[in-house]
Write a protein that binds this DNA or RNA. Structure first.
Lengths: 206, 206
DNA sequence: GTCTATAACTAGATAGAC
DNA sequence: GTCTATCTAGTTATAGAC
C-alpha cells in the first residue's frame, strides 16, 4: 500500500461523504495516516487530487460501459429504453469488485462533482470522456428516434440529475427505507428502482 | 431597505450561486454593503441566516402550493399525474412576483440545501413543513392508487432529485441550450420541460 | 519520499467603542 | 444598531532538514 494510494482511498471516502469543499486535506491525510505535505508532493494540489480520484474510477468504468452500450445497439434494431439503462447496471456494479463500495462511492462522487465546485469537474469529465456520452446518446436515439436533439438534451440531463442526486443522498434514503418500510436496500436495489423511473421519463410522450 | 433585508437578499443570491458552504459571511456583507458584524447581530450565526433565507420563501410558497394541491384532488376523482405536477407551476412562478428571480433562486437554494451541509436543511424543511409533503403524497396517491407506499417513497425522491439537480445547474443548462440549439429558455421553460418527464417517471409501470 | 515547521491566508464569531 | 479591531481556529501550500 503506497502513500499515494492511501491518500486516494481516504480522499475518495471523505469526498463521497462530505463533498469536495467539505473535506480538508488535513482530514484526508489524517485518515490515510500520512503526512499533510504528502498530498502536495504526490498530487500538486487539492484540485488535482480530486481529478485523480475521479479518473481512477472513470478509467475502470468507461471501457466496460462503452462496450455495454455498443452491445445494446447491436442486439436489436430498436432496443427498449429500459434495455439501454440496464446496460449501465453491470459495469456500475463491477466497480464493487474493483474496490469495496466502489459503485456507491463512485456514484456519490459523481453527484458531488455536479454540485460542489461550480462545475469544474463536470467540464473535466465531459471533455475527457466524450465517447461515453456519444455512445449513450446513440443508444437512446436508437431506442426513441422520434425524440428531437433538444428534447434528448433536456431529458438526459434530467436523468443525470435523478441519478446523481439519488446517489449523493443514497445513505439517507436507504436509512429511511429501513426505518419506514423495514426494508434493507443496497446500492444495487436503488439502481433497480431507478431504472423504470428514468426509462419512463426519457420515453415520455413529446 | 433595512440592514436585515439587505443581508437576506445578498445571502440569497450568493447561496443560490455558490452554495452555502461556498459562500463566506464576508462575501455576503460585502455585497449587501453592511458591516461584517451585522450578520451575527441580526441572525446569530450563519446557520440561522441560511434558515431565514429559506423560510422567507417557504412561508410565501407553502400556503399557495397546499391550496393548489388540494384543488387538484378536489377537481377530479382521478387526476392525471401531469395535472398533479402542473399544480406546482403557478405557485412556483408566483415567487417571481414576490421577488426578482424568485422562482429560480428558490429552486436553486432548494437544490443546494439537499447536497451542501449534510442534510441539516432537509431536516429543517421536512420537519417544518410536513403538511406540504403530505398534500403532495395524497395527490399522487389519488392519481396513481396502485403505487405502493414504498415505490411512492422512491419515486418522489427521484423526482425531488430531478428537480433540484436541474435547478441547481439550470444556469449551465440554459447556456448550453442557447449555444447548441440557439434557444432561449427561461426558468418557466425548464419547468415545462421537466413536468412530462417526472410525471412519466412517477407513473412508470411497477 | 517523508518529515517538521511555518508561511500566508481565510473562516466564523465577538468584545467593546460609539 | 453599527462600527473597528481582534480572536480563535481553520484552510492550502511550501521550504528545508533528514
Amino acid at each position: 500500500m503506497t502513500t499515494k494510494n492511501r491518500i486516494l482511498d481516504a480522499a475518495e471516502k471523505l469526498f463521497a461523504d462530505k463533498g469536495f469543499n467539505g473535506t480538508s486535506l488535513r482530514e484526508i491525510t489524517s485518515l490515510a495516516e500520512v503526512n499533510l505535505a504528502a498530498v502536495n508532493y504526490h498530487f500538486g494540489s487539492k484540485k488535482e487530487l480530486i481529478k485523480a480520484v475521479m479518473s481512477r474510477y472513470m478509467n475502470e468504468l468507461s471501457p466496460n460501459l462503452e462496450l455495454a452500450l455498443t452491445n445494446v445497439c447491436d442486439s436489436s434494431d430498436k432496443p427498449s429504453l429500459v434495455a439501454v439503462f440496464s446496460a449501465f447496471v453491470e459495469p456500475l456494479l463491477a466497480l464493487n469488485h474493483f474496490k469495496e463500495n466502489g459503485t456507491s462511492n463512485f456514484l456519490q462522487l459523481l453527484g458531488r462533482g455536479y454540485t460542489d465546485s461550480q462545475g469544474f469537474l463536470r467540464w473535466f469529465l465531459t471533455t475527457r470522456y466524450p465517447t461515453l456520452i456519444n455512445g449513450f446518446v446513440a443508444a437512446v436515439h436508437k431506442a426513441y428516434p422520434e425524440l428531437s436533439a433538444e428534447d434528448m438534451f433536456w431529458r438526459l440531463h434530467f436523468t443525470m440529475g435523478t441519478i446523481v442526486f439519488t446517489m449523493s443522498s443514497s445513505d439517507a434514503l436507504m436509512d429511511i427505507a429501513k426505518n419506514d418500510f423495514d426494508r434493507n436496500v443496497d446500492i444495487s436495489g436503488v439502481i433497480k428502482q431507478v431504472i423504470p423511473y428514468v426509462a419512463a421519463g426519457v420515453g415520455a410522450p413529446i
